[in-house]
Design a protein around this nucleic acid. Structure first.
Length: 215
DNA sequence: TCACGCGGGAGAGATA
DNA sequence: ATATCTCTCCCGCGTG
């Protein structure tokens, strides 16, 4: 990092990303969309956060379908809150980029709650705790009976000293509304990944490429 | 009335 | 040392 200027890093990064986009037209437009501050901040967040410092080692990586099927459905009814434009490379700060790259290099930050939740959702063994809402898009629901079990797992994953509860976990979940990663659905125990979040989680989790967004 | 889920605010801990 | 991010904790409110 010290050996390269921020600009160099950004350029290199963009170049690499462009190569990826040549196989994914959708993603290309995703990046090339209009310029808005709101989108900028949201995407910055995205870059810093879609890392997998903690692979689902403790979770049997089970029968992941080869495609995006676990979401059980396409994604189109997302609330208007989430920006639909792509990231703005021009705005990717060196700090954010560094974080992203560090994460890519495997030295990143601790696992984040929505990563953890996605892992759980992708794990059929955890369906009794949390599951996708069929026929909905990126929507998932906690089991009223086992939600605290999942929260406890989250607490374990974080290495918390005090026990995690659903109440505290859901509070953290609702904080994601500010960054546009997850939205609260007006239904008990139900939340929804934003479109971008879901796509990127799928890309990360399934190694992408075959994963086409159903829009 | 009670239990439960939700939302706000403040603060802690980790990271850059 | 400082700023920022991401929770964690506590409290109060609304609803069934």
């Amino acid at each position: 990092m010290d050996t390269q200027s921020d600009l160099d890093v950004i350029l290199e990064f963009l170049e690499e990303y462009h190569r990826h986009n040549t196989v994914s037209g959708e993603e290309a437009s995703y990046w090339g969309a209009g310029v808005q501050e709101e989108a900028k901040s949201a995407e910055d967040t995205t870059w810093t956060q879609f890392c997998w410092p903690c692979q689902p080692h403790s979770i049997q990586a089970s029968a992941h379908p080869p495609t995006c099927e676990p979401s059980a459905a396409p994604f189109s009814q997302i609330t208007a809150t989430g920006p639909t434009h792509g990231p703005q490379p021009d705005f990717v700060s060196s700090r954010q980029l560094a974080k992203h790259q560090a994460a890519e290099a495997g030295s990143g930050r601790k696992v984040r709650l929505f990563h953890f939740l996605f892992e759980m959702l992708e794990n059929p063994a955890m369906a009794h705790c949390v599951s996708w809402v069929p026929a909905a898009e990126g929507v998932f629901r906690f089991s009223a009976r086992n939600k605290d079990q999942l929260a406890a797992l989250w607490g374990q994953r974080k290495g918390n000293k005090r026990p995690m509860t659903y109440q505290k976990m859901s509070r953290a979940l609702r904080n994601y509304a500010r960054s546009g990663e997850i939205f609260k659905v007006k239904k008990k125990l139900t939340y929804q990944f934003s479109e971008k979040t879901l796509k990127l989680l799928h890309r990360r989790h399934h190694g992408d490429v075959t994963c086409k967004p159903h829009v």
